[in-house]
């Protein structure tokens, strides 16, 4: 396989990166950001919506800060996994992403902005031509979605990054910068349907870092990941359950988020709030798990069938909540 040709830009600072982006935009040229490249470059090799310009963030020094309440977009996943400063669950979930070699290149920003995946889409050009393309990369043919045909209004490719659910439950705020200035929002508001749009990033905008509230260490919990092989498989489903321990064994606050099930990660506050109000230990966990299962709608475009993934959400939710019974 061969990469399509593109011009690589390597800015040394955030300002330089943004002005490059601005210049390209004003001259009507499309580009992609590349961080570790572990997602973008395989997709480029497959000729999936490749652009003629790529701006690398590797030399942008402002994006690598790492502390308990601040994580730069260019922090490598392995550094996050090895860090003693960050929330222990964040280190754990980071160590569950891909393989160590990929984690040494892959970044936090790239993980959050990971492109959605679908077995009709993550294929070579010849392969996709043989199915006459699909909506997400239709090569000008107006092709249909192959997963849910005859709708042509949205792509339901699956978001399969691991970090988002834990970050959302830890109350992360995401910070963006663009040629028009910066903005921030809770991470839960960052993701936006559909499988093509993925998030609120405007053209030319990038993620600079995440920040966390100072009570981050008060949160406890777990992340459970479903996959075939522990070495490097993407999550077929992932569930994070975090809580603040409250009086007499019940949680005083509870958050649940999922990944690997839909085109964006799910933040399940109604489900969590629903059980929190009248917490009854194990039966509440069962109730929560069932509610989360009902809330997700996986489709057939990853390795496991959707019915199984959905059932497993229940098991994963229970397992991620098991610490609640030990409180």
């Amino acid at each position: 396989m061969r990469m399509p040709p593109f011009t690589l830009h390597t800015p040394g600072s955030l300002d330089e990166a943004l002005s490059l982006a601005g210049d390209l935009q004003s001259s009507g040229q499309e580009f992609d950001w590349v961080a570790g490249g572990t997602d973008l470059l395989p997709n480029y090799k497959w000729h999936l919506n490749a652009k003629s310009h790529v701006i690398s963030l590797a030399g942008v020094s402002e994006l690598t800060e790492l502390s308990r309440t601040h994580i730069g977009a260019m922090v490598r996943l392995q550094d996050l996994a090895d860090s003693n400063d960050v929330h222990p669950l964040l280190a754990k979930v980071s160590s569950m992403v891909a393989s160590v070699m990929i984690r040494r290149s892959g970044t936090v920003g790239g993980n959050i902005c990971l492109d959605t995946r679908c077995f009709w889409f993550n294929q070579s050009e010849e392969w996709r031509e043989s199915i006459e393309w699909c909506y997400k990369c239709d090569c000008g043919t107006g092709a249909d979605c192959r997963v849910i045909p005859n709708q042509n209004t949205q792509c339901v490719a699956t978001y399969q990054a691991d970090l988002a659910p834990v970050l959302m439950c830890l109350g992360a705020t995401i910070h963006l910068a663009g040629p028009e200035g910066g903005r921030s929002m809770p991470l839960t508001e960052f993701f936006e349907l559909d499988g093509i749009t993925r998030n609120v990033l405007a053209a030319g905008e990038l993620v600079t870092h995440l920040t966390f509230p100072s009570d981050i260490l008060d949160w406890q919990g777990d992340y459970q990941k479903l996959r075939q092989r522990e070495s490097w498989d993407f999550p077929e489903a992932g569930v994070a359950v975090l809580w603040k321990p409250g009086p007499n064994g019940s949680p005083s606050d509870l958050r649940v988020a999922t990944t690997g099930l839909e085109s964006i990660p799910g933040f399940h506050s109604p489900e969590a709030d629903g059980v929190l109000a009248s917490w009854e230990g194990e039966s509440s966990i069962d109730e929560l798990a069932e509610a989360v299962r009902k809330a997700v709608r996986p489709v057939l475009n990853t390795w496991y069938p959707p019915s199984y993934r959905r059932k497993m959400v229940k098991v994963l939710t229970k397992r991620a909540s098991s610490g609640l019974l030990e409180v």
Binding site: Q123, R229, E230, S231, W232, D233
Partner: peptide, 20 residues
């Protein structure tokens, strides 16, 4: 569904790794 081999690559053709 369409008779295409959907996993002609080593990420989705799942050969056990050292973990398995």
């Amino acid at each position: 569904r369409s008779g295409h081999l959907i996993n002609p690559d080593l990420l989705d053709y799942k050969i056990p790794t050292v973990h398995e």
